[in-house]
């Protein structure tokens, strides 16, 4: 069969980073033309296939940050460096980088929502998007769930970075409170010249985008990313359809004007 879009390619695991007790990052050897926000269908033969967003990439490798909560991800969690996984992609519509050029970019990420925006953060920080400024708010339920902490120092150096956990914890000296509280504190921003990215659990995105709208951000300047069950990634299987929108094709990154009209 020629050009079978379902045929995955083998990708060798170069490195495994344990992020939390149940989250880990697989760096695999693969080359692809990726836009931040896109995802791959990751599979292991005989176990299954699932959509996983790209959490980082270079010309030589791609990273997937995975939470071991399902049949496939639990098996992926057991793999070692040098093992092989199978991937096909990238799929979906990523972040519209050209729209962020010469703009202030605010990124709000909740929990594992930080994974799909990490490539965007990196591109914003390394200058390849050409943003005017970056403000990053990353919120986690608790300190044990924090992802990518090894990069925080670097991020804090290069942008206005707010890390918060939902509730105070013994020994935690940093910010606490939901991301919405920190969005509310944002000031001295020229919202006319700012694009906002909000990615995280459904409830977090709902309330965070509402905060930005309250602050006066135009809806067309707000971007979100959806997570849905997908079996194909290419607009056939029907699982991710919401209204006329296929999250795998039209998303996962959607403009708020579009996303806010979608009812599952």
């Amino acid at each position: 069969m020629k050009n079978n879009p379902y045929r995955p390619v083998a990708a060798r695991i170069l490195k495994i980073t344990r992020e939390t007790a149940i989250e880990f990052t697989l760096r695999v050897e693969a080359q692809a033309d990726i836009t931040p926000g896109q995802f791959f269908q990751v599979s292991l033969p005989r176990t299954g296939e699932a959509p996983i967003s790209v959490s980082s990439f270079t010309r030589d490798w791609i990273e997937f940050t995975i939470r071991a909560v399902g049949k496939l991800t639990n098996v992926l969690h057991q793999l070692k460096e040098g093992d092989t996984i199978f991937i096909r992609g990238p799929y979906g519509t990523g972040f519209p980088l050209e729209k962020y050029k010469d703009r202030n970019l605010i990124i709000v990420a909740g929990g594992s929502g930080l994974a799909p925006v990490r490539p965007l953060i990196q591109k914003a920080l390394d200058g390849s998007i050409g943003v005017k400024s970056l403000r990053l708010i990353a919120g986690f339920k608790n300190s044990e769930g924090i992802l990518f902490s090894h990069q925080f120092e670097d991020w804090a150096d290069k942008c206005d970075f707010t890390l918060t956990i939902d509730k105070p914890e013994p020994g935690w000296t940093g910010n606490t409170g939901m991301v919405t509280e920190h969005i509310r504190k944002l000031s001295d921003i020229d919202f006319a010249d700012t694009e906002v990215v909000v990615v995280g659990p459904g409830v977090m995105m709902k309330f965070s985008t509402a905060e930005f709208v309250l602050l006066g951000v135009a809806e067309e300047k707000i971007w979100v990313s959806f997570e849905r069950l997908m079996s194909c990634g290419i607009g056939k299987c029907g699982h991710c359809k919401i209204d006329y929108t296929y999250v795998c094709l039209d998303g996962p990154v959607l403009n708020y004007t579009h996303a806010s009209t979608l009812i599952d």
Partner: peptide, 9 residues
């Protein structure tokens, strides 16, 4: 036309 993908052993 909806389908699911399953792997079997």
């Amino acid at each position: 036309s909806c389908f699911s993908t399953v792997d079997i052993f």
